[in-house]
Design a protein around this nucleic acid. Structure first.
Length: 435
DNA sequence: TCTGGGGTCCTAGGACCC
DNA sequence: TCTGGGGTCCTAGGACCC
């Protein structure tokens, strides 16, 4: 059996922990650049604020409903996430077994073969209560024979807070059948918008219970090959995936951003790409990797008059490095000609990004006979930069190519203090009203 | 005027090899 | 120029997730 522990409205919950005055009041958190709503409390949902709605479209509505708006504060959410996961590890792990699989910033699976079936419900309640008591973040817990079924349990637990108290265990055939019948295919983990439409319109399949009974060969043909087959088996209670190794390295590293305001000239475009390349290179070094390809892309405003989602207008250029590198200035040097060749005068640029691929362990990079000494120096330089920037918690030293004026950086007008990661922004007891 | 930023896995098809 | 069978590697694109 598996449990999934999922934080309720995670970003909003994090804000609430340090703003007890907002305990019973609505909160939303905005995406980067204060673009759209990405986290909502129950009060905000009830006020009719949709997920992923652009901020400018619901601003008035939010004001009228007295809902507090925050820009996203990833320092805070990252640190709160660590606390939640640490709590789960304390409860679920023993010295020789790591049963916690962190799935995303606000979710973790826990493998439960060590818990007797009759104790599963109490155990799930214990998980929930402990996380809430230790971190202040509210969570829901779903338990089932496979990961897909535990996700289904979690969703139903959230849907019926009064009945389930945020915990639901799917154990008997009867319980599982009822859950499957009650769940629409579009609400199954692994069925996205397109498959849901296809299943409904072409085949008349609406409930998870119906989907569970389709032949595997049919799933292979119509639901993305082996992915579809695995999904059906998971619905039947079979576990189709081993725990992911937490040491596994990323196969692709991307840094992409909308600009705070549109960009029309080459210079800021180059600064932005240099900045994103530097950030991506940091991520690369943090996992002891080097990249062998570099892809630069820009997004223009596309054709006028069309709705946003139909006007991507992206253009990209990529470059294969003569040998893999994680040295910031080498990568920037390769990226700059790509930006210059992409740039066209008079075009309005909204967004840009860098994607590093062909990622290999940095110790496997072939040493160049004639430049071993230089290479050592570059590595030492990167170490110094990373250590300085990390210990000072900011870009204390940067490359000149990343710019000095930087008018293109994102907007974040309503960010809360970084309460848990900066001394000068520490939460002060007695300043606010605390229960 | 103003719509996020990451990732994963899989398949098909082309280039190339023996 | 035609003829076969069996592979690998790479890229683009589609689907999904939070």
């Amino acid at each position: 059996m598996y449990a999934i522990v999922d934080c309720n409205s995670f970003y909003c919950s994090c804000e609430r922990v340090f703003r007890p005055d907002l305990k019973e009041r609505g909160i939303v958190v905005l995406s980067n650049n204060d673009g759209c709503v990405i986290s909502r409390t129950e009060e905000a949902k009830k006020a009719g604020i949709g997920m992923a709605v652009p901020y400018y479209q619901c601003r008035e509505q939010l004001e009228k409903a007295g809902i507090t708006v925050f820009s996203s504060n990833y320092y805070l959410y990252g640190d709160m996430s660590r606390r939640v996961m640490d709590t789960l590890r304390v409860i679920a792990n023993d010295s020789n077994e790591d049963r916690v699989e962190v799935y995303s910033v606000d979710e973790a699976f826990i493998e439960l073969s060590h818990i007797p079936p009759e104790n599963l419900n109490d155990y799930a309640i214990h998980l929930k209560n402990t996380v809430e008591q230790w971190t202040g973040v509210r969570v829901s817990v779903g338990v089932g024979p496979s990961r897909v079924l535990s996700k289904m349990a979690n969703r139903l637990a959230k849907k019926r807070p009064g009945i389930t108290n945020g915990v639901l265990v799917l154990q008997s055939d009867q319980q599982i059948r009822e859950a499957l019948e009650e769940t629409e295919v579009s609400d199954i983990w692994g069925i996205g918008y397109r498959y849901a439409v296809k299943l409904r319109d072409e085949f008349g399949i609406r409930s998870a219970w119906q989907l569970k009974h389709i032949p595997l060969e049919w799933a292979r043909k119509n639901l993305g090959g082996v992915v579809g087959v695995r999904l059906i088996k998971e619905l039947c209670g079979e576990t189709m995936r081993e725990k992911k190794d937490p040491l596994e390295k990323k196969k692709m590293i991307a840094t992409t951003r909308m600009f705070g305001a549109p960009v029309y000239t080459l210079e800021p475009l180059r600064e932005a790409i240099a900045t994103y390349t530097a950030r991506a290179a940091e991520k690369l070094r943090r996992q002891y990797s080097a990249a062998s390809s570099l892809d630069v892309f820009v997004v223009t405003n596309g054709s006028k008059g069309k709705p946003y989602q139909y006007q991507p207008g992206t253009d990209h250029r990529y470059f294969n490095l003569p040998r893999p590198s994680s040295v910031t200035h080498e990568l920037i040097a390769h990226a700059m000609p790509l930006v210059t060749s992409l740039y066209r005068e008079g075009v309005k640029y909204l967004k840009a990004g860098v994607i590093l691929g062909g990622i290999v362990p940095d110790n496997s990079v072939q040493a160049d006979l004639f430049s071993a000494e230089q290479q050592k120096n570059k590595t030492a330089l990167m170490d110094v930069m990373d250590n300085l920037n990390f210990s000072m918690r900011g870009d204390v030293i940067r490359y000149g190519a990343t710019g000095t004026t930087r008018h293109w950086t994102m907007r974040q007008d309503k960010r809360s203090p970084r309460y848990t990661t900066r001394w000068e922004e520490l939460f002060e007891v007695g300043k606010g009203k605390v229960d």
